[in-house]
Design a protein around this nucleic acid. Structure first.
Lengths: 189, 189
DNA sequence: GACTAAGTGGAACAGTCATTCCAGTAGAGT
DNA sequence: ACTCTACTGGAATGACTGTTCCACTTAGTC
């Protein structure tokens, strides 16, 4: 049974857990590197066995790393939703979402096909908050009402990720995307 | 040296080449299946060695399969560009592009990271044609002029692929995407 | 300063996959 | 029909990767 995925009891093990997590997080921003257990372990200065054992598997490690990146984004979305006029929350959040995905777009690549419970839950949370943003904007007349909020959220999330994945990163492309998307979401004249 | 990638001389080998190509093409539309040489070979009723040897490698086989799908799309874009009023060509082509990518979206997944010379060339051709569509639409006042045609083409290509990748496929999402994209591309009021 | 259990990591293992080998098969020309 | 060789495909190979093993190390406690 060994340690499986429970929090380690010893201080050095806790430190190694942090090192592995930081290394994985750093590699999520480097699309060139293979993102294997071996690579993560070498970056963290640990053995591959330690990295795997501490988290109970590579998937769980990536789940933790991606979640650590995603959680502040969800929180930021919640803050904007609560503290901003409804029509404006989307305008403010979308550029931040694209910028975040640009900085960590390998994280997005990992989202699909893997079993990552925490990350999946966070994505659900983010989708729900964005749906509320869209609904609020629709009530304010800032967004067209002929698209379902859930569909609009899916549309935004998928396209934003695709734009962020562009390599080399292009600010021109991001700007054009935001311009076109925000105009396209406005109610038709 | 064997046969490498040259066209086979014998009739049965030619038939097997076609079988392998058809099997690979069919699997490109089935995201569930692994798309391994073994899978392609079994689908084609051949041995894995034959499939690999006939094309000189898995990459070359996928290059041929994807190119076979992409070439008609490029031709269709050329026809629309030549035979349609400039402002309308984009409106007609975009739904077809999304529909094509939806039907064969595994092909899009294969486009990245592999060495596929023919496919890469075709993508370049398609980008060039779409840029001309955008330029024509801009001259006609149908598309906003504050986005570079090359940037707009990259924007369209990336987002269309992302929408087509949605699973399960959602016509609602496709419709919303086309609505938002086309309105967003129009000159601002 | 020991003692003990938690923790480590190099090595072995297991699974997947593309590619190559080679003994056997079967077209194609005569 | 016969032969020659292009071609086939099951098996072996090699590369890669995540996981497990186990002899060894070390943090935490008395």
């Amino acid at each position: 049974m060994s340690t499986s995925s429970g929090t380690p009891r010893r201080a050095d093990a806790l430190r190694n857990r942090r090192l592995a997590l930081d290394a994985a997080t750093a590699l999520l921003a480097e699309p060139g590197t293979p993102l294997t257990v071996e690579t993560i372990a070498r970056r963290a200065g640990l053995g591959a066995a330690t990295v795997v054992r501490t988290f109970g598997g590579k998937d769980a490690l990536l789940d933790a790393a991606v979640s650590g990146l995603l959680a502040p984004v969800v929180q930021r979305a919640r803050d904007l939703l609560a503290g901003t006029e409804s029509g404006r929350a989307l305008d403010l959040f979308l550029p931040e979402l694209v910028a975040f995905q640009s900085a960590h777009h390998s994280a997005g690549d990992q989202l699909g096909g893997l079993n990552m419970p925490t990350t999946t839950a966070l994505r659900g949370d983010l989708a729900r908050v964005m749906e509320e943003m869209v609904e609020g904007a629709q009530r304010n007349g800032a967004v067209r009402t002929d698209v379902d909020p859930a569909v609009a959220t899916s549309l935004i999330g998928r396209t934003a990720l695709a734009i962020a994945r562009a390599r080399p990163p292009s600010q021109q492309l991001v700007d054009a995307y935001l311009t076109v998307l925000l105009q396209g979401l406005r109610p038709p004249a």
